[in-house]
């Protein structure tokens, strides 16, 4: 909270693109209830500011929405998806909740830590990756999974996550979603209907 790095940022304001998006969000709420838009606005601010929110950005959003600054700090510190300290270009968020864990998230975590040469909660020296542990991201059907920035990568194991990270590090854009060829969250053994007789 009182990281000297955080204090060194002393100005923040929306660029024209952010401002436009912010005004669209505010317009969704009745007049005088603009504070309801605090969450999307914090997200817009975070996206503009390399994926994290310095205090000045929270203050800016508070003033933008004419609401107490403290109320914005409360929201921003409550939700883990707002980063209050700097993150690398690629924010690797690994789910370690029960379904992912049962399907081998420990092995995925080990592989990531080995590949990036950092531990959980750290950022690589080249500022390319930050690794964090998160709670369930709602893709249990394709567990284990990780989220890198906005994209989900599912059905992972040691090898596939290794390939994935290496590709991202070299500037590539790997396929989003299941890494074993599954379409969306369809059954792994192909489609079924209620008319099919049970295969098991």
């Amino acid at each position: 909270m009182n990281d000297p790095k955080i204090k060194s940022f002393d100005t923040f304001s929306f660029n024209s693109k952010s401002k436009k998006e912010a005004n669209i969000c505010i317009a969704k709420y009745p007049k005088g209830k603009q504070a309801s838009a605090v969450m999307p606005l914090l997200d817009i601010a975070q996206r503009q500011h390399n994926g994290w929110l310095p205090r000045v950005a929270m203050d800016y959003v508070a003033d933008f929405l004419k609401m107490p600054r403290m109320a914005v700090y409360e929201v921003a510190s409550f939700y883990t998806m707002y980063n209050l300290s700097p993150v690398g270009q690629n924010h690797v968020q690994v789910c370690t909740n029960l379904p992912c864990w049962l399907r081998g998230s420990d092995r995925v975590v080990n592989a990531i830590e080995k590949n990036l040469k950092i531990k959980m909660g750290e950022t690589t020296e080249d500022n390319l990756f930050t690794l964090t542990e998160v709670e369930c991201l709602g893709a249990c059907v394709n567990a284990p999974m990780i989220q890198i920035n906005d994209a989900y990568y599912e059905d992972l194991d040691e090898t596939s996550v290794d390939i994935l990270l290496t590709e991202i590090a070299s500037g590539g854009a790997p396929k989003v979603g299941s890494q074993i060829g599954r379409r969306s969250c369809e059954p792994i053994n192909g489609l079924t209907t209620l008319f099919d007789s049970s295969k098991d």
């Binding site: 107490p68 403290m70 109320a71 409360e74 510190s77 409550f78």
Partner: peptide, 19 residues
């Protein structure tokens, strides 16, 4: 409105956040 609760769950703290 300078006091608030930051963080959540067991990490919730009452304070001004900005000292």
């Amino acid at each position: 409105p300078e006091l608030g609760a930051t963080g959540r769950g067991e990490h919730m703290e009452v304070g001004t956040y900005v000292e």
